[in-house]
Structures are given as C-alpha cells and as structure tokens.
Design a protein around this nucleic acid. Structure first.
Length: 565
RNA sequence: CGGGGCGUAGCGCAGGUGGCUAGCGCGUCUGUUUUGGGAGCAGAAGGUCGCAGGUUCAAGUCCUGCCGCCCCGACCA
C-alpha cells in the first residue's frame, strides 16, 4: 500500500480526551476515531490489525472444533424474558423505541439456546461448540479508556453444548487451552485468574487478564502461582478462634468510640478480637454481617453467598429501626429486631469478642458467638489484602490492577432449562443440555497489546498483529534514483507475498521517520541516495531502533529470518 | 446516578471583570527554496464561539435551561 494514497490520518499532537496510552496511540497512529461516547470507527490501518486478530481467533476456534455462526444483534425480547435477563440486565440492555419487542443483544446465550432447542434432539447431536465474532451492544453507564470499555464492541463468543458435566469439563478445557494459544500468538503477557460467575450463573469461571493501571479489575497474585480476581480471592489467615476462658458477656460505655480504631486506642483491645457489624438489605430482607474489625466486606462474595446481586447497605434510618442503634454501635447481641446474622469464616465460633451493643455509646465485651448469640451461617466474606499468605503455599499476595481480555464460564443448565433446550439420552430420558460460555473482547486484545508494547515514539508491533510486514521509507522523492529504487523494492516485496506499507509521500525525512515509528511496523527499510551510492539497503528494527545495512542479495534472507508471521 | 472539569478553525489552546475587525501554534492551499528525525521564506483560505432562550445600546464573555465529551466514584452479564 502506498501511503500517499492510503487514509492514515496520524496526529502529531495528543488528543485532549485520551488518557491511557493505548487510546492516545490508537488515535495518533490513525487506527480509530471516536464517534460518540463508547462508540468508535475503525480506520483502514486499524481494521487491518483487527482482521489479523480475528484470523487468529478463527483459526484457534476452528482448531477445537468450533463452528462459526453469525447471530443477529436484533433480538426478540420474549426470549430474554424467558431467562429472566431483561430484568437482570436492566439498563445495560438497549431497547428500541420505534419497534416494540426488540432489544439489542448484549451477549448471545439466549439465541444459541434457542437454536439448540430447535434442532438438538438426541445425545447423538452432541457435543457442539458454536461461536461467532460479532458486535455486542451494552449501554454502559460510563464508557472509558478508548476501546477498553465501549457501548458497541466486537466479541468472539462461543458456547459449548454437552450431555454430561464431564463433557462440559472437556469443552471448558478446550477453550482454556485455545485461549492460551490465542493470547500467546498475540504476544500478550497475560495471566489467568479464578473469577466470579456473577449473575451469569454456573459453577466455575476463569478470566484472562493483563496487568495494567488502566484496568478496572483488581486481582490477587502470588509467587506460588495463585491468581484470583479480588471478587473471589482468599488467603490463609489464621482464624480468631476460641480462648480457653471467656468471662461472662458485659456491656460497657464507649461514648467516644465510633470506629474500630477508636476502640483499639481507648481500650487497648486486640485488633483481632474486635468484630464489626454491617447491615445489608438482601432481596429486601435485612441481614447483619459480622466481620473482623478492620476487614473489608467483599460485596461480590456476599452476592455469591446469597446467590443474588440484589443487595445494598442499609440506610441510616433502617439501621436505627432494625438494630436500635446507629452505625458504630451495632452488634450481634441485643438486636431490636430478630434478623438473620452471618459472619466471616475467620470468626468461626470465636469468643472473647468486642462488638456494638445496639445502643448508641455502648459495646459488649466477652462475646462468645456460640454462647451468646446464634450465627445463621459462616461464609468467606472479607476482601483479601496485600501481603497476606496465599491459600496455595502461603506466599505473600500482591494486589494488581488488570484488564479482562476473556472470560470462560461453566454455565450448566440455567439457559437450557429456562428455554427448554433438551435432548434424549441413551435411556430415552429427556435432559437439559449442559452449557458453557466463553468470551473474548476483540478490541481489547489490540488495546492491551499496545498497553504492553509502546514507547515514547509510538506503537511497537510484532508479527502477527502488525498491520503490515515491512515499512519502506523513501527519502527525498525529488531524487529519481531513490524513487526508482523504492518502487522496484516495493514491487519485488509485494510479489514475494509480503504486506508492504510504502511511504512514497513528498514529506521530509523527519516526518516519515516519526510517522513510521508512530505506526510501529516491526521493520523499516530506508531508501536514500546515500544508501544507493553505497549499494546497500538500510533496515531499521522498530523495537530497538537499531539500524543495519544489508546488500540487496542479503535482504531476502534477512526478511525470511525476521518477518515471522 | 453522585462529584469535578471542559465545549472557541481539522487538531492543541488563549480570550471570560460585557465594547471596536475573535486570536496563537500546528495542520491545510498557492508559489519558491530545501530534503537523514515533525524544514525556511512569501502569500491565502478556513469560525452560526455546543444548542435554545434571556438580560443589555452591545454577549465568546453575564443569567436560565438543554445537549455533548472527559475524569473520579457508583454500576458492570
């Protein structure tokens, strides 16, 4: 492609609205342009990269037996009502105004299950892996960071259909391995974490992450190899446990102690024996949650424990009404109304605890959770903190921000049951199809790659994502010798099957060098009078900025060794 | 949805206590000189100052409403 004829609007100045490096560089290098919040156009150069990614996705999905579909973005709302997800999605789902009963699909479990119901009859029709590379629509409340969080984006989504849970395990593992290959082929430095299935339902899920300050997820990772989304991460802290002797429970005044730290300072209690209580309204029922004093409640874990995402902290009015006290004096003993009480695992059957007395300005000490109150259930509810011992080997946990590239779920039968997608097994028994769902954010692959591969000059592509293999730069197009040599080389490399970007523009050397570094194709070949006189070609490696001189005969060997697609 | 910021030429910005013809840099166009790291000179084009109302002799500037964009938070199958 000749750059003089190619629409690649590079920007010298950094666009004011861009904050994260990948967003800045994708705009500056002419890969994308924004149309509105969370909506982008892909320009020709960017679309080439997108297609390189899509090719890899297709190859690896086909390699595990995936069959490619193209499903509609316009979906009948009835099918979403049957799975209860119109309500679950809420505002995230786009509804059309001038056509009742149609929504824009934010994902495709429903449509896949619909087709499975239509045509899967027997165990002989299974297993299946169905996938597509298609545009998703989600009404994100706050799109951000370029293509990292959009209202319209491309997803590679696939769905496995199996007759048994062992079959689901196999399909899941096939995807796990395929995803590793995909991200490795894209030269991404990624890691895999255990994750929450959220309201998707299902038993197991893992996320593919890259570490990045631009990320919206937080993960706990440890030298042992332990890696988990903070939503589900655990650690191996010792429980508070029981002391041999616990005196009778005793109320005492604490007029100036509003926080856990106040109590420690004023009364010299052991931090571990302080218990704090928070009240949540879960499915409109109040629940008191007891935690170690300085632990942070993890709402995701609470959602998992109660199997719902319909929960919120109680308001201060509700607190007073339910417990009889205001925040800071609430506890598990002496509640004004009888409500469900759950506690964090670290407090399992503990005694000698200090907690609020449900009377402003008073606390209880010597609380024995077995003797003095009834805990309805214990769950892991706390948020893991930096430095805590990991559950695998006790190595210290590090907390990092990360971007989610992909997510694989064992869905189970949630959708097949809701939509009656069943099959007859060998014994003639009708059973729901066992499903998995697996997604990759296609644009995120590109943004994440750029987050990990750029410098002050621009993007640094590697094969196979690079939009072109080779970037030819002619210096001073007033020189016939230079133009002749560059044109000749351009034709020759094209005929050898290389994808070549040829900067034939009437621009100064500086402009061409800077644009080439910004666009970031791995190899640049620089044609100038100087080099022609010496009868050499100058090749520059984008990543290292190293230049080497090679003869024309050596060039083909050089390219064979260095253009590794 | 809460908090903050912004909206003036293609891009980046100034002007903002009301006042005269709305500026600067980059880019663009013409001519010319230049050609190894975002060239020099000369000339030129390009604006409903986000939109709508209002106050005023006079509004980019003040007031009201709306729209849009960015950031922090909430939310995120």
């Amino acid at each position: 492609m000749k750059l003089s004829e190619y629409f690649v609007p590079t920007l010298k100045e950094v666009p004011a609205d861009a904050v994260v490096p990948s967003h800045k560089l994708m705009l500056r290098a002419g890969l994308i342009r924004q149309v509105s919040a969370g909506v982008f156009s892909w320009l020709p150069l960017g679309f080439r990269v997108l297609n390189k990614v899509i090719n890899i996705l297709r190859e690896e999905m086909n390699a595990i037996g995936g069959q490619e579909f193209l499903l509609p973005a316009l979906n009948p709302i009835e099918i979403w009502e049957q799975t209860g997800r119109v309500e679950a999605m809420g505002d995230v789902m786009f509804h059309l105004k001038n056509r009742e009963g149609i929504v824009l699909a934010p994902t495709h479990e429903e449509i896949i299950t619909y087709h499975a119901k239509q045509h899967i009859q027997s165990y002989k029709d299974l297993p299946q892996i169905w996938y597509q590379i298609q545009t998703k629509f989600r009404n994100e409340p706050r799109p951000k960071s370029g293509v990292l969080r959009c209202r319209q984006f491309i997803m590679k989504d696939s769905y496995s259909l199996d007759t048994t849970w062992e079959g689901l395990d196999q399909s899941y593992n096939k995807h796990l391995e395929a995803y590793k290959k995909i991200f490795s082929r894209c030269n991404l430095n990624f890691f895999i974490v255990g994750a929450s299935s959220g309201a998707m339902g299902g038993s197991q899920s893992q996320e593919f992450m890259i570490e990045s300050d631009a990320g919206e997820d937080v993960c706990a990772i440890a030298p042992s190899g332990y890696a988990a989304n903070l939503e589900v991460a655990t650690s191996k802290l010792p429980p508070v446990g029981r002391k041999d002797y616990c005196p009778p429970i005793e109320k005492f005044p604490t007029p100036n102690a509003k926080t856990i730290d106040d109590l420690i300072q004023q009364f010299r209690f052991d931090e571990n024996n302080l218990a704090k209580s928070v009240v949540y309204i879960i499915e409109s029922e109040p629940v008191l949650i007891l935690m170690r004093g300085n632990d942070e409640l993890n709402e995701s874990k609470l959602q998992i424990a109660f199997g719902t995402n319909k929960l919120r902290p109680a308001t201060s009015d509700e607190l007073l009404q339910i417990t009889g006290a205001n925040a800071g004096s609430i506890g598990p003993v002496g509640l004004k109304t009888k409500i469900k009480i759950v506690a964090d695992n670290l407090l399992m059957n503990a005694n000698c605890l200090v907690s609020g007395a449900n009377e402003d300005g008073y606390h209880f000490k010597n609380i024995d959770l077995v003797r003095d109150t009834k805990i309805d259930a214990y769950f892991d509810l706390r948020t893991v903190r930096e430095g805590e011992p990991c559950p695998l080997a006790g190595t210290p946990i590090k907390i990092v921000k990360a971007i989610e590239l992909g997510h694989i779920f064992k869905l189970g039968t949630k959708y097949s049951e809701a939509l009656q997608a069943t099959f007859l097994d060998q014994d003639g028994v009708q059973k729901p199809i066992i499903m998995g769902s697996y997604g990759i954010g296609v644009e995120r692959i590109i943004a994440c790659y750029i987050e990990q591969n750029h410098d002050e000059h621009g993007i640094i592509w590697e094969y196979p994502l690079s939009p072109f293999d080779i970037h030819i730069i002619s210096i001073n197009i007033k020189s016939n010798k230079v133009v002749e040599k560059a044109e000749e080389l351009y034709s020759k490399l094209l005929s050898l099957g290389y994808e070549v970007l040829y900067d034939d523009r009437d621009e100064t050397a500086g402009v061409k060098f800077n644009d080439a570094d910004l666009i970031g194709i791995p190899l640049q070949i620089i044609i100038s009078e100087k080099n022609i006189q010496k009868n050499v070609l100058e090749v520059k490696r984008r990543r290292t900025q190293q230049r080497e001189l090679v003869s024309e005969i050596e060039l083909l060997d050089f390219l064979q060794q260095n253009v590794l697609k």
